[in-house]
Design a protein around this nucleic acid. Structure first.
Lengths: 230, 230
DNA sequence: AAGCAGCTTCATGTATGCAGAAGCCCGCTT
DNA sequence: AAGCGGGCTTCTGCATACATGAAGCTGCTT
């Protein structure tokens, strides 16, 4: 996470109250239960969570720092209004950062890391065959994070994870089409090949294309379903 | 800033108390008045700022979100321990992000934006001649931020500014050598030329080199002055 | 003497109370 | 009837008080 907060675990039973509230609100914003622009009344939220305003305030501050909530001094907070254009910008940013990561990783990864990545990639084959979306999502995360770490630049890796998480809040309307699943793995395959050949630039270009393909698919999805303000 | 907080201005007289404390602590950490690893006692800070613990807590949370402070649940906070290695990682990250920005900017900037950038660059000539470090610092910031904006990706621009600001906290030990000043402008010149030729890849490579040169200079500085834990 | 248990102390986490500012509604004026 | 001003309401921001978990210390046991 590397967000400056160590709470033990992200479970929901025993952490700090403010963290539980933060996680809950994050989920609700991500799932759309709290629509963009919705006012966030402190007392109201406190009542809803059976807590006082204090932990709610702290949760809101943290969400504001993460960009999910906008706070105006003495005027309360609202759920950040994220337009489709901005989501596309976020996608492009992630794509570029991932491209940077895979290029550096190609040049710097240890044989052990390369082996781990190959193993991970191989494991995704049966997942695609089975069409298990949740499992693939989990694998996909591991795959990309393995690349982040292989840059041997922990700060960059943290940035990549942070921006990726921030984007994930809007990927719930994920493209759950089997075709994209297979294409995603094929693109991974191409990236792996470039890595194997030690061609960081090629891996970088393919990674960028990989991410932008996902963005394009989502864009089409938004277009056809007319999800105006997300 | 796009950090989710709108406080009117960053002045110190009339904003929110928690913001004033946050700014003050940011400065103190940046200047080294608060050394890395120093414990941050809430009550103690509250006394020092003549406030209660509440705004201090909020300030600490925001700083934690920004990475300047590490908070462990129920165990208080300490100034984030930023090793020279980590600073170098941050430099590399900034260099890569800037490289991405200038490539996108090259392909997307409007004639007006290009003109503005050229004007900005021209204005830096007399500043270098005069050896005015502060003025050059200000210009440099404008120059790079103009490039961010020219990407026409506001999210990416915000990320770039955020990570740059975070790094700036450690650049106070800035290399104030006239030679570096002139070389910096020469590198800008080379970047401008690549932009003028519409060669985004070239501009990107030169920008990366430009940033890494600055990092190398700082690295030498740290090495010779043995600023162990920063 | 070393290690552990229990207690004490203290800092954090949470709740509540209070003051001030922003927004709103109502009534007044033109 | 429409625009404006004042009082009112409500919510945020800050302060203070209470509860709880963590760290350190003391004394006992082995």
């Amino acid at each position: 996470m590397a967000n400056g907060f160590e709470t033990g675990d992200d479970g929901d039973d025993r952490g700090l109250l403010s963290d539980r509230i933060r996680n809950a609100l994050t989920d609700e914003i991500a799932t759309g239960a709290l629509a963009a622009g919705a006012a966030l009344d402190e007392q109201q939220l406190a009542d809803r969570f059976g807590a006082s305003r204090t932990p709610v305030r702290e949760a809101l501050r943290q969400l504001a720092a993460g960009g999910l909530v906008e706070l105006r001094a003495r005027r309360g907070g609202v759920v950040a209004h994220t337009t489709p254009e901005r989501i596309m910008e976020m996608f492009e940013t992630v794509a570029e950062i991932e491209a940077v990561c895979v290029r550096l990783a190609t040049y710097r990864m240890t044989p052990l890391e390369r082996s781990h990545l190959i193993e991970l990639h191989d494991l995704s084959q049966p997942i695609v065959e089975a069409g298990n979306f949740d499992a693939y999502d989990s694998f996909n995360r591991q795959f990309h994070e393995a690349i982040y770490h292989a840059t041997h630049n922990s700060f960059l890796a943290e940035q990549a994870i942070a921006v990726r998480n921030r984007l994930n809040a809007f990927r719930r309307t994920q493209l759950r089409q089997g075709e994209r699943l297979r294409r995603s793995r094929d693109e991974h395959e191409a990236i792996m090949q470039a890595i194997a050949e030690g061609d960081g630039e090629m891996a970088s270009r393919r990674m960028r294309a990989h991410m932008l393909n996902a963005a394009t698919s989502l864009s089409r999805f938004i277009e056809t379903n007319k999800l105006g303000g997300v």
